[in-house]
Write a protein that binds this DNA or RNA. Structure first.
Length: 268
DNA sequence: ATGGTAGGAACCCTA
């Protein structure tokens, strides 16, 4: 059994107490973090080592963005992509190495932080929106070249289904749920026949959110959430998924991230 | 229709 978690942590240094609580309670084998907001030099390695997560792949950046994958089972860094072509740290890939490659048990884990895309869903007036679409197109080109069982996880910053948002109608023109973004994400999905593992276990149209804005006093009031975080697997790997859990309580913990962690378990 | 909060770095940008 291998379990993999994904969590947009919004500053790993500030959030280390709740990361430690989550790892202590749930003990996933691998944790993929997005928005670590630090460079590798100031990443809290010792805190993760003390919890047993002694394998690390850090793609950090000063102040913004940044991703990190930590593990308590052997792994090594496999790739880094700059799908925005501007130097931002939004991806790191690892391969699990402890089980022997070619054993039918190997897995590549791609940890990605898709750009949010700004406020206006029009690339002519908002270049960030264009960068988001271009990022997804480069991911799509890359997906066509995948040759090994792959799990891609992270903050995709898109909620594709009507049941992924608190109000489909009210969010149709809000960046993260526009038809153009949903279509662009679908093309990425089709490029490798990715399986949306979360939705294999929490079926549409069941409510499934992973993010609630900070801009409200109590995230529970109105439950205005969106599913921005995803775990997608190659078909042969998705067939080995045995469970999927989300931890909404973490949104109410002390000094929370605005995202919650997701965990998928695989029989490998 | 609007503005609301959070984090990091440096007094603004990103989300």
């Amino acid at each position: 059994m291998v379990s993999v978690a994904s969590w947009n942590i919004n500053s790993v240094r500030l959030r280390m107490p709740i990361v430690a609580q989550f790892l202590t309670e749930q003990a996933p084998d691998v944790l993929c973090l997005q928005e670590i907001k630090t460079v590798e030099e100031t990443f809290p390695f010792e805190a993760f080592n003390a919890l047993g997560y002694t394998h690390h792949a850090i793609h950090g950046q000063k102040g913004y963005h940044g991703v990190a994958t930590v593990s308590r089972i052997p792994m090594k860094e496999f790739s880094r992509h700059d799908w925005q072509a501007n130097g931002e740290a939004r991806h790191v890939g690892v391969e699990l190495t402890g089980r022997g490659l070619g054993s039918g048990q190997d897995m590549v884990i791609e940890n990605v932080y898709v750009p949010a895309g700004g406020d206006v869903p029009d690339r002519e007036v908002n270049p960030k929106f264009g960068q988001k679409l271009d990022f997804l197109q480069r991911m799509t080109d890359w997906a066509e070249t995948i040759e090994r069982p792959t799990l891609i996880v992270g903050d995709f910053n898109i909620a594709p289904l009507e049941s992924d948002v608190w109000s489909h109608k009210q969010l149709l023109k809000v960046v993260s749920h526009t038809p153009l973004e949903v279509e662009t994400l679908q093309r990425f999905k089709d490029a490798h026949d990715f399986v949306d593992v979360g939705r294999e276990f929490i079926k549409d149209p069941e409510r499934y959110f992973s993010w609630w804005s900070y801009r409200s006093k109590d995230y529970r009031v109105g439950d205005r959430g969106r599913r921005l975080d995803h775990m997608w697997a190659s078909p042969e790997l998705a067939a080995k998924a045995t469970g999927h859990s989300i931890y909404e309580d973490c949104r109410g913990w002390e000094k929370p991230s605005d995202h919650i962690p997701l965990v998928t378990e695989f029989a490998l």
